[in-house]
């Protein structure tokens, strides 16, 4: 009994240490919101296109065929989206992926202007003025980007702009794993 009691302080220190190691890890983001949609099919939706944009709208049907797709949620009023836009243009050109845009809670005229000014990397852009489709996708704030498998399953969810080394590394890793997953299955 005494032996057991004597090891107790060490056991407590180890438990506390493990907890602090986990809790104080600089890579851990305590604000991270889990994505319950990962591994599930894309939600059922259809979005109309935006007048004056040369690509049309899209819906679940378009996301359930073809190759790997990226779905980007953006808005003209969102400053980080502006920073991210150049990255999206490069991504769409360089990687063998199709980029879809959900224009979240944005006036269609503003979105049209934004795309005309900044360039349009999207294969299709749908207008989600009410934000309802955003809720279906579990969007908490723009920008967010999803990786969708050829058969319409959500493989990866990135919250925040794809700007900076950390974001690009994480997203690139997500894309690589998505490709692996598809190659295997």
């Amino acid at each position: 009994m005494k032996r057991i009691l004597m090891t107790l302080p060490m056991v407590l220190v180890l438990i506390l240490g493990a907890f602090l190691y986990w809790g104080l890890n600089p890579d851990r983001n305590p604000n991270e919101i889990p994505s319950p949609l990962l591994g599930k099919s894309v939600p059922d939706f259809t979005l109309a296109g935006i007048d004056g944009v040369d690509v049309g709208g899209f819906g679940s049907a378009e996301l359930s065929s073809g190759g790997i797709k990226l779905v980007n949620v953006f808005a003209s009023w969102c400053v980080p989206c502006r920073a991210e836009h150049g990255v999206l243009i490069k991504l769409a050109a360089r990687e063998n992926v199709q980029l879809y845009g959900i224009n979240y809670k944005d006036k269609p005229t503003d979105a049209q202007q934004w795309l005309a000014e900044m360039g349009n990397p999207y294969a299709a852009v749908g207008s989600d003025f009410s934000g309802r489709v955003g809720i279906e996708w579990g969007v908490s704030g723009v920008p967010e980007t999803f990786i969708v498998s050829p058969d319409g399953v959500i493989l990866y969810h990135y919250r925040g702009p794809l700007v900076g080394d950390t974001a690009l590394r994480d997203f690139g890793e997500g894309l690589r794993r998505a490709r692996e997953q598809i190659g295997q299955s």
């Binding site: 919101i33 889990p34 994505s35 319950p36 949609l37 809720i135 279906e136 996708w137 579990g138 908490s140």
Partner: peptide, 8 residues
């Protein structure tokens, strides 16, 4: 709500 945003 939980189906879209999790228990969170």
């Amino acid at each position: 709500l939980v189906a879209r945003y999790g228990d969170y």
